[in-house]
Each structure stands twice: as structure tokens, then as C-alpha cells.
Design a binder for these strands. Sequence first.
RNA 1: GGUCCCGUAGCUCAACUGGAUAGAGCACCUGCCUUCUAAGCAGGUUGUUGCAGGUUCGAGUCCUGCCGGGAUCACCA
Length: 588
Amino acid sequence: MNIFQHFLSVLLDQLHALQAEGVLGSDIVLDKVAVEPPRDASHGDLATNAAMVLSKAAGMKPRDLAGKISEKLTATGQFSSVDIAGPGFINMSLSDAFWQGQVSDVLKAGAGYGSSNLGQGAKVNVEYVSANPTGPMHVGHTRGAVFGDALANLLEKTGHEVCREYYINDAGAQVDVLARSAFLRYREALGQDIGAIPEGLYPGDYLVPVGQKLAADHGEALLEKSEADWLPEVRALSTSMMMDMIRDDLAALGITHDVFFSETSLHESGAVEETLKLLDEKGLIYQGVLEPPKGKTVEDYEARPQTLFKSTEFGDDVDRALKKSDGSWTYFAPDIAYHFDKYNRGYTNQVDVWGADHAGYIKRMSAAVRAVTGSNNDVLDVKICQLVRLLRNGEPVKMSKRSGNFVTLREVVEEVGRDVVRFMMLYRKNDATLDFDFAKVTEQSRDNPVFYVQYAHARICSVLRNGTDEEKGFAGEDLSDAALSGADMSKLSDDAELALIKQMAAFPRVMESAADAHEPHRIAFYLYDLAGAFHSLWNKGKDHPDLRFIVKEDKGATLARLALIRAAACVLAAGLGVLGVEPIEEMR
RNA sequence: GGUCCCGUAGCUCAACUGGAUAGAGCACCUGCCUUCUAAGCAGGUUGUUGCAGGUUCGAGUCCUGCCGGGAUCACCA
């Protein structure tokens, strides 16, 4: 349960009552009324801006209106205190008993804690990775891959029906280059001396197996054919083998897509033509000449008549080309058809996860989606993941893409582990650049959030193991979630214990707001804070042995505290589950 | 030059989509660390939120204009 949502409805009931009594006009809109955690915990557990946002419409001073509202709230008996503060905030506090009850609620929900029906089953398509099938994934793809996957998890857990999709660019010139590069490896596999890989072809070793497969399948037969004859076949095999490799790379990160959508299929089915015809019928397509970009000198610019889309009518800066001057499609045309296809599959909510280098592409894509769907509300949300700077002890890691000697996703995962990669890629807002320091991310200290959060979970597991230890704990005691949820939680009265409970109880709200904003990083930051609250409580037991989780002389308190930390472990595990990070049970 | 992103403590970053006295970690200072798991804990110090206006009860957040950094810029993907 999102307690803030719950108490918002309590508040709204009271506001409606005030409307019924004529204190508030019945036509006043209550949309802007919110119940939130106050920034400063000393202000209470819940705060509302109701009096401030309604005062003008009500014709009352904020503090006077706050007085009326707080009387009503007090009368519900649900709050231990209701105060008016500052410019008209109403601060509410909840009883310890309420908070203690939350521990049982968490335990009963278990791994499902934080899940909600916020999305009400709405279909959402999250398209991410979509790396060209021309080689292994490199580190630049990693952030978007993890981000998209975590966002999909987050949306799933908040009641959306999510499709994880990968768009395969298997129709452009780059896959022809791939095919030629593979053909070279084919000749190599047949024993020919191919020398250095020519400029403009893909030099990477990963094409060697493709050449060998071609040699095994065809022998020398392809050598006899002209390029036009062998190209389609070699291209198909190459892209399919590249996709296998990419799927393996993604699997190393724990990522699986539901749909791999081929660009070629859009051409073959005629979807591109159909989509363009639709735009044409709407009068959004014309033959024209694009001006050279302002300010930037393009040396080989020449005026060319092209088929253009009126994206300026939908907020873009210039109109965009759908066909090249030679009459073939630009990449933009099938992209429109692709997004329209998603729309026609029922995805009126689409998220695209792109790298920073594609940021300039957002306006035209959004424009095209608006045009083709005829929808006013935004169907498409594009999330840009900014660059990742790889560092080792603060020094930038040199990368040279030219030689094909770039850092691959797999190398990073193998060096530091999947969990570390996933967590760190989410420990920044997506639109801020991110530093990834190989040395720092494997450090075992509070400075390293992955460690800190996982350690909290492992520590809890360890304490629970001790809970049934003959010497340290209570042998044979039933410490299952079901048993613990029945413990006498009134024993949890220390401030640090209540603080931990309050932190846990905020989780459902964090989940909902993160899902709403499409910002999974909020979960990572939340977990770091939650881990901090737990470690802090653990350490309190050093100075105050009576506050330790396991107190041999007090079984009642022990069970309540084990319930508390077990609940914290559930929340940690649920949050880590969204990030796709394993909640480990033991540190080694 | 256009567009987009970023600019918050000495450093790395948060700030729950407009809330109250802007918060964490690192660093620095003081104390603790023969512990239910050691890799830490408690406390203290740290600010013209790049600058200048505007919007309103209220701005780090929204708008306008500057400054600085990054990405990107006809037909390539």
C-alpha cells in the first residue's frame, strides 16, 4: 500500500465534507492537493499543501483554511497529531502502532511489496538496445541496455503490461558492409591470403566464425558468384550470427527481450510504403529541397530535391527527408513505419531508450509519431542515456574504435560482474553523464553503493541465521515470514527502528513515482538510503547491547526485531529485483 | 550558428516533477571499533543552487536572456 495515496484519500474525504458544508465551494478542483513526506522528518510523517493550493479559490487565508481542514483531519482519529506550520502546511503524524503494523504488511507482501496496480494493465512498449547487428555489444550500449531493462521491470511491477523490444537495423548499408567483411573472412577460411582488412570494412575477429560457417556450408561455391548474387545470403547469415552474439552479450547482463523486430520485415511487408501513403493522404509529404544547416558549413552540400515530411508542423525545426536523392528510403522512413506498427499492436505508450548521440533525432521521431497516429497526447517518450566515461583509478580508459579494439560489454561484465554493472549504470539520472571507475566499483566500502546495499541484505540474512543458532539465538524457533509477521511489533519503539520502518513504508511511493517519471535510478538511490538506515540501526547495537537484534533474554523483542530486519530484507530484495541485481545472502 | 543535455558544498552526486531551514558520500576535525559479519559507526564543519530578470502564497525545479561544459547538426546508421 502506498500510505501517501491512502492518506490522500482520507484528506479528500474531509475536503469533500467541507464542500458539502459550504466551507469550500463545490466547484473547486482538488487536483493539486497532495500528501507527501515532509522534507524534514521533524515536521511529522505526512504533509499536505491543501490549504495553500485551495486558499485562493476558497477565498480564505491559507492558515485559516488550514485550521478548518486540520479540525476535520483530527476528528478522523487517524492521526496522532495534526499541526499547521509555515505558510499553511498541514503536518500529520501517525501513531507508533500504525508504523509497527507496517512491518507485518511488508512481510505479508514479501517480494511483492512495492508492486501496485498503478498502470491498470496499460500496454507499454519499451524499446532498448537496438544496436546494429554488426558486431558485439560495446560498453557504450551497456547503459541503455540496463536502463531499458530496469525501466521495463519497474513498469511491470507497477501494473503495466510491458513488451521488451529490440529493433534490428538489418536493412541499411551497414549490413551490406558487414556482409562484405564476412565474405572476406570466408575467403580467409578457404585458405586465401586476404591481407589487411581494407578501410571501411569491419576488422573484428568476431567475423572469423561467420567466414568459417560460410566455408563449411558452401565450400568454394560462393567464389564463383557475383557480389549481387552472394550478398543477400551472406548478409542474412551474418546478421543472424551477429544477433546470436548480441543475445549472448545481453544474457550476460541478464537481459532478454520479448520481441526482436526486423527492419527488413517492414520493407518486405510493404509497411513502409503504407505508412508513407497515410502521411501523404494527410498532406504531410512533399517534394522539396532542404537548406544547408545554418551556421555549420557542410562542404559537399548540394541542393537536392527529395521526398520530405512536414515535421515542422509537429514542432520540429526543419522538415526531414524520407527518401534520399537517389530515391531510396532514408532510415527515417522505416522508423516511422516501425513506430506506427507498435502503435497498431496496441502500444499507445511507447518508450524508446537511445544513446546521447541520437538526441537530435527526438523531435523528428516524436513529430512523426504524432502525425501518423493522429494522437495529441504523447504516445512516445524518448529517454536519452548520456555517455559513460570509463575510468581506472581516475584515469580515462583509452578506447580506439578504429582498430576494432574497443571495450566490449562482455569485458566489463567479466571484470566486475553483472550486479556491479547493472547497479552502477542506474546510480545516475539517465540524462547525466556517468563515470564508471573499474577500481571504485569493486571496492568494499560505503563509497561503493553496490557493496553497501548488498552488504545490508547479506548482513540481515546472517543475523537471521544466527536467530536459530543454539548459542546466539533461539534454536528451533520458527522464523518464517508468516511466523515473524505475527510477532508483537509494539516492541519496536526505538527511534532508529521506527526510522527504518518509515523508510521501508516509503518504498511503494518511490516505485510509483519512479515508474511515472520513467526514472529507475530513483530505486537505486532509495536502496542506498534504506541500507544506510539499516546499517545505522545495526551499529546502534554496539553501544546499546539491549538494542541488538538478537537479545537472548528477551525473546519477544528479538522476534519483533527479526521481523523488522527481515521486512527490510524484503524491501531491499524487491528494489534490487527492479534493478536486476541479485540480493546476495552472504558476503565472501 | 541551430537543437538537445548538464551546471547544486573543496570533489562525486541527490532533492520524491513547484514546497518549509537545499541533502548524502568522499575529504577534513573529534570520539568509538576484543561487535548479532571485519570491510565501519556516532557527531562536527562545508552553499550567492553559473549570472540577470520574470511567473506566484512559494523557484535548484517553470519561462526569457546571457555565461561555461558536453553531445549532435542535408543524403550516413
